[in-house]
Design a binder for these strands. Structure first.
Length: 274
DNA sequence: CAGGCCCTGCTT
DNA sequence: AAGCAGGGCCTG
């Protein structure tokens, strides 16, 4: 379940490898991953073009090219992008789309095949609604305390649901939301509009903190995550509540609770988080 | 607002 | 053999 830190970890690696590389050919092993184009149009548009940059907004990766079209990718649950400088004989496990480059190759792999790839215009809006409506990125300067306070004030949902909403803040997923709420001492059930200024500020700090920690540790590998070079992250060793139900809260010793909220597994300390 | 859907591999 | 993992989108 790649969230902002995992996607950014991948982006940073690809940014080292890909710019300047020419896409020689594309093999689409699983056409249904292409959401707004046929395999033929996809291959036609990208073959021969030179990759210029790799950017990220929220959990989306944007592979920019020198041509009129770029590629937008969402890894969803189990997508992965791996660059092989020296391609092996066989396609790696779960390889779904292969980009042969002038040097090496880029492989989009996906166990559960829930990921999405789109062909998008190089400039202007992409026409992909999930991307065009993203809120400020969780680690960007645009995501300010004032912005957070303003949005929360007019929202009556539980805070967990708000934080998972990519149009409010981009990049948080289930793991980092549970962690941020723990650090901020806020219950996932808490209604947004009832949060006072002190707690909003604490939440803002906590969001920044968990994302920074995730990045610093190369992402969180709970099940499937590997980075652009095929390595696992280390941030799972630093989680406070996610996946720790039934164990004592690191602050007060109360047993961490697990329950379903809006279809998501939710982990929190009923004593520390109010 | 909750719940279903998509998906597969691992756990129970 | 069923349950579970859940991001984003869709429906009721």
């Amino acid at each position: 379940m790649p969230e902002l830190p995992e996607v950014e970890t991948i982006r940073m690696y690809l940014e080292e490898c890909l710019p300047g590389r020419v896409i020689r050919s594309v093999t689409v092993l699983l056409p249904r991953l292409l959401k707004n184009t046929s395999p033929a149009a996809f291959i036609q548009a990208l073959s021969g073009s030179t990759i210029t940059a790799v950017s990220r907004r929220g959990k989306y990766l944007f592979i920019h090219t020198a041509g009129p079209q770029g590629m937008l990718i969402h890894l969803r649950m189990t997508g992965r992008l791996v660059y092989e400088a020296e391609p092996q004989e066989q396609v790696p496990s779960f390889g779904r789309i292969i980009f042969e480059l002038d040097e090496g190759r880029l492989i989009y792999g996906d166990v559960r095949t829930l990921g999405c790839l789109w062909l998008v215009p190089a400039a202007g809006s992409t026409g992909i609604s999930g991307y065009d409506t993203l809120g400020p990125d969780g680690i960007s300067p645009d995501f300010t305390i004032a912005y957070l306070q303003r949005q929360l004030k007019q929202c009556h949902r539980p805070i967990k649901s708000f934080l998972l909403d990519q149009t409010q803040v981009a990049g948080l997923g289930n793991i980092y939301v549970d962690e941020a709420l723990f650090l901020a001492g806020i219950s996932p059930h808490r209604r947004c509009a009832t949060l006072g200024a002190v707690r909003v500020k604490r939440l803002h700090t906590a969001i920044r903190q968990v994302l920074a920690a995730g990045l610093e540790h190369g992402g969180t590998t709970v099940r499937n995550f590997i980075d652009g070079s095929g390595r696992e992250g280390q941030n799972q060793d630093y989680l406070h509540v996610y996946g720790r139900e039934g164990t004592p809260c690191p602050h007060c010793g109360t047993i961490i609770v697990y329950e379903k909220m809006a279809g998501r597994g939710t982990h929190y300390c009923p004593k520390c988080q109010k």
